[in-house]
Write a protein that binds this DNA or RNA. Structure first.
Lengths: 132, 132
DNA sequence: CACTTATTTAGAATCATTATAAAGTATTCC
DNA sequence: GGAATACTTTATAATGATTCTAAATAAGTG
């Protein structure tokens, strides 16, 4: 029922589909990275039920807007999301096309000295590209 | 003739189209960010000649592979490129969907403490998202 | 339960990017 | 210079992720 409350509290109706997606995304101790395509496969495997692709897109975007997911800035034809919404960074292994978490403690503090008038910093994200 | 040599030296034939694209990209003191669509418009305006979109894609990818351009990691439906290939970072103004350079001196040194076995760091890129 | 509003859905539409394959151009070697 | 070869360009088609549409369904409210 924790997901029912979570959804209700953010103004999202707790539908069967959203609850199933919550389960796949958040019913695990480990956080993970995924694309919509990854997620669709995972859903198909874990729940014995079909959720329309459009619904997966809608839900992921709603969750991202509510702050339950983060997009990872990376150049790829697919959009990557992260269930780890804490302030942290990523390695990207160019050869294996794989994202690896960098804990905040793995990166020294980042000091942005420049200011832009009337703008606030919303996030600071570091992408470290790896090669062999 | 500098572009002819530049291209030849990297194993690319100096074709008319590539030279024209070089002119648009590199014949200016200022570096800039662009998408393929931006660039196509710029080419149309600056040279009175048509270059096929396929050629623009081919050329930009060739230039990126040779290190004359960098892709900017950002979530957008279009790929952003940068003629500034030096080690530097970006602000991204979410509202105006605009990229702004952060000189290396605007960002304190970034210390990546974690190591991945057998992998070398190729680049470290910081994206600072701005909101109002 | 009736009513309003949000959500789901299949399929179509969109749009950036990549593939194709034929015509054109640069390079090489004589 | 003039083949022969290899690389490029090009228009167009294909691909593939994402978004749109509009009808059907489900949730919230009184």
């Amino acid at each position: 029922m924790k997901y029912i409350d979570k959804l209700r509290n953010s103004g999202l109706r707790p539908t069967k589909q959203r609850l199933q997606i919550c389960k796949v995304l958040f019913d695990t101790k480990k956080t993970f990275h995924f694309t919509i395509n990854d997620l669709a496969k995972k859903i198909k495997k874990q729940i014995n039920d079909n959720i329309s692709l459009a619904t997966i897109y809608n839900t992921i975007h709603a969750f991202e807007k509510k702050g339950y997911l983060k997009q990872i800035p990376i150049n790829s034809n697919e959009t990557y999301f992260d269930t780890n919404i804490s302030d942290h960074h990523h390695f990207y292994d160019l050869k294996e096309e794989r994202l690896i978490d960098l804990e905040n403690s793995d990166v020294g503090p980042i000091n942005i000295k420049k200011k832009i008038n009337g703008k606030k910093i919303k996030s600071v994200e570091v992408l470290v590209k790896l090669e062999d």
